[in-house]
Design a protein around this nucleic acid. Structure first.
Lengths: 157, 157
DNA sequence: TCAATCGCGGATATCAGATGTCCGTGTTCA
DNA sequence: TGAACACGGACATCTGATATCCGCGATTGA
């Protein structure tokens, strides 16, 4: 079970965007994080389609958050990149073999699937409780209060 | 993010094993669930290496749970098959680019990674709270009280 | 007006891991 | 001794993640 590395990129990009004053092009975001420009562009397009960022085309174009960072959860970003498919997908093997479960029984989800989905719900709840603004505050705490001033300065270069 | 389908197979097999009186060969477990015999054998070997089941070789060999079903959690099975690697793997992109995080800062895990790991912990806690015995009880509830009698009968065939 | 900068989507290439099979070996028991 | 079983390794296949490139249209400043 593995999450796309694009999720990590996207979350970090959202934190940077939450501190930017102007649209930031994909090129800048890629440079800032030392990652592939073309591939990051794909992920930013996913964020755009999910409605988390809006893009402006043209010469001074780039990406901007569509909402305050406090209203964008980590779960929003994860699902924008990784999709909404559950990690566990029940293939209904209880319906196979010599003693298949009856159709009436199968109107309810399999007990195994229920346990897995409950766990994934707990996972989602945990991610939903953390916002991009929370992460930004954490960065300030870890790296010092002037961190984002330096970021803005570099972005303006 | 996707969990191996082998996890589903393994959990169902553990439920069956919790109700068996004698060692059950991989062949029988595969037939019962209508799945690939050779591939299931691989997963059963993983369960064996993880210490959840023990195998007896030879003519009347097969698999048996090593502990009472109440002491085997769904998490145990998931980790036996899918491994212990976290779904989110931090690649430390905060150390890249023109404004890398300082080495002192990086003694602590990145805030993004902390949020992800907290969520995965919640997921594990949820899975740890459900045992194979719980699942077996659920099967009885869903399929009727004689379900496992029929299973044992078929296994004895 | 023109050229540079940008986002967007499609096509494509590459690669790792999941999925699935097969075979040889060793073990147990009738 | 032979049948049934577990085990591990080698192997084949297939899917999805990773990554790049191109052409298109939009925007802006010179």
């Amino acid at each position: 079970m593995k999450m796309s590395t694009g999720v990590e990129w996207a979350v970090h990009c959202c934190v940077v965007l939450s501190q930017a004053e102007d649209p930031v092009p994909a090129q800048r975001l890629a440079e800032f994080h030392g990652i592939s420009r073309t591939y990051l562009a794909k992920h930013l397009q996913q964020l755009s389609r999910a409605g988390l960022v809006s893009s402006t085309e043209g010469r001074v174009g780039g990406y901007v958050l569509t909402r305050p960072a406090a209203e964008i959860s980590v779960l929003d970003v994860v699902q924008a990149i990784d999709g909404h498919e559950p990690a566990f997908r029940c293939t209904e093997i209880r319906q196979n073999g010599p003693l298949p479960a009856s159709p009436e029984t199968c109107r309810r989800a399999c007990g195994v699937a229920r346990a897995m989905h409950t766990a994934e719900q707990a996972w989602r709840d945990s991610l939903r409780a953390v916002s991009v603004a929370d992460l930004a505050a954490g960065v300030l705490e870890d790296n010092g209060p002037q961190t984002f001033d330096r970021v803005r300065e570099w972005l303006a270069t």
